[in-house]
Design a protein around this nucleic acid. Structure first.
Lengths: 351, 351
DNA sequence: CTGAAAGCGCTTACAG
DNA sequence: CTGAAAGCGCTTACAG
């Protein structure tokens, strides 16, 4: 009784903001002339068949009048779940991420699920961060983006996005199909000397591009000599350097298949350095369909990943995992978007 | 006693994950041979002068052994604050945002503050979203990025980032100084016909660029006729179109000062369309220093905003606002980064 | 169909 | 310096 936790009387400064005390379920109950339990039933969506339609109406109306919303923490504390899932990412500034997050958030909205974006600090690993978030009961479950956990047990329900590891459910892009589309586009244009500007990052998704690229060329009867490959670090400058190597080969490749738009942007820089006109003397294919592919000059032909859908499907898959029905969804198809960086090779490639 | 909220026994699936029950403060207390209150004191950082060093050690050790972390929701419920602040943004895919969020998160980490990224859905306005988050006690306070609220009262403590409105504390980039640096760079290179490719977005930050650009040219004795201006929508294609206009003027501007890297990327496309070599016959200045400026071909000279610092300062300012000491920090200086898209005009501009 | 009551795990005056 | 106790606002069997 002597007790007075006035956390929210501090709510006023900033805007001049009304320092209204939050109404509680009790107050709503009083106004509606029902018990607090009934109010809870209505707001937790468990009213069906337990509260009469008429009473539910009265409750909702009273709540509306008072501006009531259930207190998230009280609910979490009692029910043992936060209805928040974490999206752990190695790099929060990844241009792809915004769309994935948006897709996941929108998919969760209907079920009242919130997605929290979590980036482990530079000094911490994701495992530690995940365990802490789980232990603080800040999240119920998590999605790992582009992280391949070394061991098969995570501290809680987990889904991997664009990553694969033993014992985990993955939500993947169909990069094989995407690669086939990209390389097919170059073949259709008449290219034969199609080099691969890849990256040496560990995730499986990159290896899949490399092997599929090779397979498509094999099928077209193109030899390994005609189609060189260089693996670069995942950065503009690394890609630029690697592209320099590729472009100083004789005969020079007429097309570059790049593992990502970022690498393609680096290749564009290299072509510019060497005064090789794109697409007249060199075609460059990106991969992912980020803003970078649109903003590049010339605009990059690329294979677009359905980033929002990826996020949405990941969230739905995670929800099923939490229910114990873990089923991996089929890989999401990518879409070829030919733009200005690809064209037929200048003359039929000498054989 | 009949009561059994087993929220966390569901934690197992996904990874094979250990379904350890979370330890409570009580269990830590027992192991350490102290009361639960003492454990709480230690973990809420209020131990100084209230718990002996020796006891504190014992508590921490016991906690470590059990893997204890205070339950965030229990703490929130009791203390009346979440230690989470919202970062409300109109567009979660803005390439600038990642850095701002990172800065804010890192600045908050020391104080145990978490930053939640919130994007109102397409159909909802930010006010509604903010009120809901606040009412659900999901956040204590918020930062609005690039949103200028029409009215001076927000539903809770609020700080504006790169936006200005009556009655609110703002955290700003020094875009005037940035503009001076950008335009000064072009003047130093010898340009006189420096056009402005601006945007018609409402935030004050854009108007500041326009007026400062004009002022710098005035000071250099350059007339309005020599320095045309076009305002475009904030998109690549809009910028491309606007740049076309600017570049078909006679005499043609020798330099373009763009309000943002995105617009500069659009200008680069227009120059490419018209076969105007950059920087030989046209210099293009970006603004912001996003990935776009690095990935462009040629790389954009730009004025770099300290995005992480912006986020960090915003968070610190918000914390002070919540304490009632609202003081606007001084605008953060921007840094001129000359790259490959600017060079002296081809010949001394005729006058 | 509705209500009374216990209890989730903390924080916080207060008493000692 | 330490502990006992109340209570934050919900959810959830259980009884009626």
């Amino acid at each position: 009784m002597t007790d007075d936790p006035t956390g929210r009387s501090r709510r006023s400064p900033g805007g001049t903001g009304g320092a209204h005390r939050r109404p509680t379920g009790h107050e709503v109950a009083e106004l509606a002339g029902v018990s607090q339990s009934t109010v809870s039933l209505v707001f937790s969506g468990k009213a069906a068949g337990r509260v009469s339609a008429e009473v539910e109406q009265r409750v909702r109306h009273a709540a509306q009048q008072l501006g009531y919303r259930p207190h998230a923490s009280a609910s979490t504390l009692r029910a043992g779940r936060t209805r928040t899932v974490g999206l752990l990412v190695p790099d929060i500034t990844n241009p792809f991420l915004g769309h994935v997050l948006r897709g996941a958030q929108r998919a969760g909205r209907a079920d009242g699920i919130t997605v929290a974006l979590i980036e482990p600090g530079p000094e911490r690993n994701w495992q530690l961060t995940a365990v802490e978030a789980l232990n603080a009961a800040a999240i119920d479950a998590m999605m790992l983006f582009g992280i391949e956990p070394p061991l098969s047990d995570a501290p809680g329900p987990t889904v991997l996005i664009e990553a694969v590891a033993d014992g985990f459910t993955s939500v993947l892009l169909d990069v094989r199909q995407g690669t086939t589309a990209a390389v097919g586009h170059l073949l259709d244009l008449g290219h034969r000397r199609i080099a691969h500007l890849g990256t040496d990052l560990p995730p499986t998704t990159f290896k899949a591009r490399a092997s599929r690229w090779r397979r498509e060329l094999d099928r077209a009867g193109i030899t390994a000599t005609e189609s060189p490959e260089v693996l670069a670090g995942f950065s503009l400058q690394a890609a630029r350097g690697a592209a320099h190597q590729l472009l100083s080969l004789t005969p020079r490749p007429t097309a570059l298949f790049c593992d990502d738009d970022l690498l393609a942007a680096g290749a564009l820089m290299a072509a510019h350095d060497l005064r090789i006109p794109v697409p007249d003397e060199l075609s460059i294919m990106g991969f992912a369909g980020t803003l970078l592919s649109e903003a590049a000059t010339p605009q990059l032909s690329t294979v677009v990943a359905p980033a929002e859908e990826l996020g949405a499907v990941a969230l739905q898959t995670l929800l099923r995992t939490m229910d114990g029905h873990a089923t991996a969804p089929r890989p999401l198809p990518m879409t070829l978007v030919p733009r200005a960086s690809t064209a037929p090779p200048q003359r039929p490639s000498p054989r």
